[in-house]
Amino acid sequence: MAHTNIRENNMLHQMIKIVGFSVLLQLLCSNTVYAQIKVFACEPEWAALARALGGHAVKVHSATTAQQDPHHIQARPSLIAKVRRADLLVCTGAELEVGWLPLLLRKSGNAKIQPNSPGYFMTADHITLLEKPVVLDRSLGDIHAAGNPHFHFDPHRMLQIAHALTARLTKINAKNSGLYQQKLLQFSEQWQQAILKWKKRTQVLRGKRIVVSHNSWVYLSQWLGLVKVATLEPKPGIPPSSRHLSKVLGQLKQKPADMILYADYQNNKSARWLSQRTEIISIGLPYSVADEESLIHWFDRLLDRLLPVES
């Protein structure tokens, strides 16, 4: 018995040794190339923006995909490892990532990306937010004290953020300021053209009545002139209850809406349920850019999904 115990202990000691050794190896290998600015983007839209504005001077990693709810991400080991090496953090802010980002920052031991340092860039700090609550009370659901953080659906705000992000990139990496200016010029030209195009395309959507699943579409509604008539979640972050749904159903029977919107990552059961009973079309919208997709392409895709309603 004692022999096996000693053996087990020896095995553990050996494992610790092996781990230690591999650390040394990794350390030796990691000091190779440090040319690119490593950007840690909390959401894929900021990853796409950083890619567009940074060009080859940046290496961007997105912590989440469009399929993940940015409110509920776990501070996974892989994310700590990424933040550890980041030069610049590009996140939404406004408490969207409050459940995981502070922990990543604390665990990273990385001085460059701590709050108030140049490597800490919260997009919400550079624009105005809608729906800033007057009363903060949890009985109102999972509300954000700073305002609604889903502003990446507003192309005008996106452009403002692009300007601020370029300034930040230039601050961190002055060497490439020429490149950043050129990229910004290119981006804003294309973006403004795209805004014109989108505006023309979406004239027909003005005044359409929508039912939303979570209040993620405030900025989109404001931009496109959509009118929100109901929300499937009784309170932000609280899943729809059958009682609340039947209330919404009753309301819609009286005064129908044109469409029910939900994010692709969200559970669409209640949206479908409501759609079947009211014959209002339910539309799943891509919440953010897909892998390596450009922001313009994503907006195009988003509007494509919204527009068939008209035909």
Partner: peptide, 28 residues
């Protein structure tokens, strides 16, 4: 159109100044 966009931007910026936004830190 460009002027319009600029005006919109300025408008938003002005509003931003008016409301002097709360900077959203982890603990604000």
């Amino acid at each position: 159109q460009q002027v319009n966009t600029k005006v919109h931007q300025i408008d938003v910026k002005l509003k931003q100044k008016e409301f002097s936004p709360v900077i959203s830190r982890a603990q604000n």
